[in-house]
């Protein structure tokens, strides 16, 4: 019989890994979202095609397939990556593809008159983006980014299948060691919810803060 404290301790260890994976993948996904979002809006045809390919390939195949592909195939192709990196790479690439679409459509959703006013004030393309378009597009992005972050958090549980000892992995290990399935999986679900809820609240707060004076 394993004590409750022992169960809780090893779940907390897993939680730390989950949060790490989450943090790194959010950063990677966000970076890729903006890079490919901008590329898909560029006038340059090759950039458009490249971002289209990236988006459709990573949205069109499944996250788990991508993780397994990276995990099993890369070593055979001669590339050895630590499990953590595989997890972060898989999650980041996958959610970056979804994020790129959000960045693209949000920028397009800024009313055309805003662009025209910034041209009439003779702003440079950089200044237009920086002062006028992006701040407004960002507010449009936020609700979807909030959802995507929750999706990504849920997606981190898949790294347990490529042997990264995250929250879910620890729970599965405990299950075979203790057979206390009801307790373990109930705590597991609650822990995920405890991580997810503040994320949702934080995004809501940010949305409110950024929409000051508008509407």
């Amino acid at each position: 019989m394993v004590s409750n404290i022992a169960i809780f301790n090893s779940l907390l260890k897993g939680l730390a890994v989950t949060l790490q994976v989450l943090g790194y993948s959010v950063i990677l996904a966000l970076g890729l979202s903006f890079i490919f979002g901008f590329l898909s809006l560029s006038k340059w045809k090759i950039a458009k095609i490249a971002s289209h390919l990236y988006i459709e390939i990573f949205r069109g195949t499944s996250l788990l397939v991508q993780l397994f592909w990276l995990y099993f195939s890369l070593p055979i192709l001669g590339i050895q990556l630590p499990a953590m990196l595989v997890g972060v790479l898989g999650l980041g690439l996958n959610y970056g593809a979804y994020g790129a679409v959000v960045v693209k459509t949000s920028i397009q959703a800024v009313p055309k008159g805003q662009f025209e006013a910034s041209v009439a004030l003779n702003m440079s393309p950089f200044r237009r983006m920086r002062s006028v378009i992006l701040p407004q597009a960002f507010v449009i992005m936020l609700p979807t980014f909030s959802n995507l972050t929750i999706e990504l958090l849920k997606g981190t549980s898949l790294v347990s299948l490529v042997t990264l000892s995250d929250l879910t992995f620890q729970a599965m290990a405990l299950r075979s060691a203790t057979m206390e399935t009801v307790k373990i999986f109930t705590i597991l679900l609650i822990l995920y919810f405890i991580v997810a809820y503040p994320i949702t609240l934080a995004f809501r707060w940010l949305e409110k803060k950024l929409s000051v004076g508008r509407g």
Binding site: S118, L121, S124
Partner: peptide
Amino acid sequence: IGMVFQHFNLFPHMTILRNIMEAQVHV
């Protein structure tokens, strides 16, 4: 050249003052 539009096209995320300052500073 300067232009005033039918639908104003003020920048909704900036205060009135910043609307008028932004291009002066950066352009």
